[in-house]
């Protein structure tokens, strides 16, 4: 029996996937239940959570997988910068920043012959 057959892949996904993620969510509930929503401790938790997500963002842009692995770094950072400029120039609307960054990336990829 390989991992592709029967119940084993489901058990594998349940243990290595479900348990490994939900444990942290449950611990978060336990920790969050002790925090008052105007406390300095919550401010710190908020800062750590935001910095974690920001680090994930930076890694996705700097070290992507798949097609973008072959794209130049300047194109990816340049597209994000372009999107940021549009975001701040035009009323801080997420849709404008996102559309500009994606349009920048798409035209860059096209010009580079992807």
């Amino acid at each position: 029996m390989t991992w592709q057959d029967g119940w084993w892949p489901y058990a594998f996904i349940a243990i290595a996937g479900w348990l490994a993620t939900d444990i942290w969510r449950w611990l978060g509930v336990v920790a969050g239940n002790k925090l008052r929503d105007d406390s300095e401790a919550l401010n710190w938790v908020r800062a750590v959570a935001t910095a974690l997500v920001a680090a994930v963002i930076a890694k996705l842009v700097l070290y992507p997988t798949g097609v973008l692995e072959q794209s130049p770094l300047w194109l990816r950072t340049g597209s994000v910068a372009l999107g940021a400029v549009a975001f701040f120039l035009f009323g801080r609307k997420p849709a404008i920043g996102i559309a500009t960054a994606i349009a920048g990336l798409a035209s860059g990829l096209w010009l580079l012959g992807f």
Partner: peptide
């Protein structure tokens, strides 16, 4: 990272 996110 889910833990501080949930806690916040």
């Amino acid at each position: 990272r889910l833990m501080p996110m949930v806690a916040a």
